[in-house]
Design a protein around this nucleic acid. Structure first.
Lengths: 212, 212
DNA sequence: AAGCGTATCAAACACCTGTTTGAAATACAA
DNA sequence: TTGTATTTCAAACAGGTGTTTGATACGCTT
């Protein structure tokens, strides 16, 4: 029988390739990742990527998965009515996604790497993941500022928050050299998230206070 | 006569290569930059880089110039006694270095690109530029917090400030897609710097207030 | 002008990249 | 079992990378 849900050998190699690709893309970035290493990890032939996904670009497009980010936003929207608390929760979950090595979702890390040099998939990433995320955080900040802040200033507050969060992932090689004793274990991630939340809440309230 | 300050033809190509290299490294990053493009811009032969600098790594090492960053710190130290004001000035000058297209110092931009993926020169960059910069900003934050903040929290404040600043450079491709109307002209850079300074001052004071 | 060390150049080198090829192996239906 | 379509594979391809080579041109002292 040829049911639509059959798991063929082909599907298995596809899955192995996607899994390996996510790991390698997250580790080396799109440009730095090589098809040969991906195939080595997936125990597949070099030609497999082009057979199953057409090209390296096609592999990246299918390796992207925006579900974890969307889930984060939906869970946060259901977390209650207090915007300050929701911001704290959001930052904590976001940092766990970005930094926790045990976290299965390498998605955020792949996208974080693409921020700097544009890949063919950047437009899609911005449209489907980053723009909604900024929108979401913008609403949250707006509630906290109680509409006392202008649009441009509000947008800059959102950028300040993302800037702080992404810095820890983006500059990891540098931070490791600056503070060799620091490890991204759960306790440290929680402390970082708490700092960013409190730091940012103070900044937002200050922006709202200096009504322009 | 063979004085030590003669400007030979060789020195001229050296200078042209260094100039071209700084531009290409800042634009494409170390990995993305090709020797052939650098030599094309410098109107030199492909073999010139290896003749004058030994290798691509050697070219990067000589292309780095930490003077502008040191000058920024020294000028800031002479700017008066009020630490809040000095932080505002520091952030403004730093952002001008990072974002102003007319700014001659591509140095900061080269280093900013290297943060993400380590190059052979990263250790040198951290030792000679980034570590002193963090040290400097740490002292400034310590004065503002009036010693009411623990070391770990103080360090995180410094990271929050750098995170916000570097985000605008690092995520420029994304921000361009998110807000196509935004331009990094002088007025905008000043506004960004003012926001980051006020946002961060509020955060630092909050940290100092919640004495632990 | 001759000689010598330096600088430049086109060309080639060795290696790595994503991709393609055509044959071999496998899976599946008749 | 036979025939057909799909999947895998080693090998080659075309293009790009940093680097090296050996000849040529140049600048400078004698």
């Amino acid at each position: 029988m040829t049911g639509a849900t059959d798991i063929t050998a082909s599907d298995q190699t596809r899955a192995r390739l996607l899994d390996a690709a996510r790991g390698v893309f997250a580790q080396h970035g799109f440009q730095g990742a090589t098809i040969r290493e991906i195939c080595r990890r997936a125990e597949a032939n070099v030609a497999a990527v082009n057979y199953h996904f057409g090209s390296k670009d096609g592999l990246l497009a299918e390796a992207l998965n925006f579900a974890p980010l969307k889930a984060l936003q939906q869970a946060n929207a259901r977390a209650g009515d207090c915007p300050e608390l929701r911001l704290r929760l959001f930052i904590r979950d976001f940092m766990l996604m970005l930094l926790d090595e045990n976290n299965a979702s390498t998605q955020c890390r792949i996208m974080a790497r693409e921020l700097a040099d544009p890949t063919p998939a950047l437009d899609q990433i911005v449209r489907e993941a980053i723009a909604p995320l900024h929108e979401f955080l913008g609403e949250l900040v707006r509630e906290i500022a109680e509409k006392k802040t202008g649009e441009a200033e509000l947008r800059r507050c959102v950028l300040s928050i993302f800037g702080q969060c992404l810095f820890y992932r983006h500059s990891h090689p540098v931070l490791q050299r600056l503070h060799p004793e620091m490890r991204y274990d759960d306790r440290e991630i929680e402390a970082i998230a708490r700092h960013i939340a409190e730091f940012s809440l103070a900044g937002i309230r200050h922006s709202a206070g200096a009504a322009r």
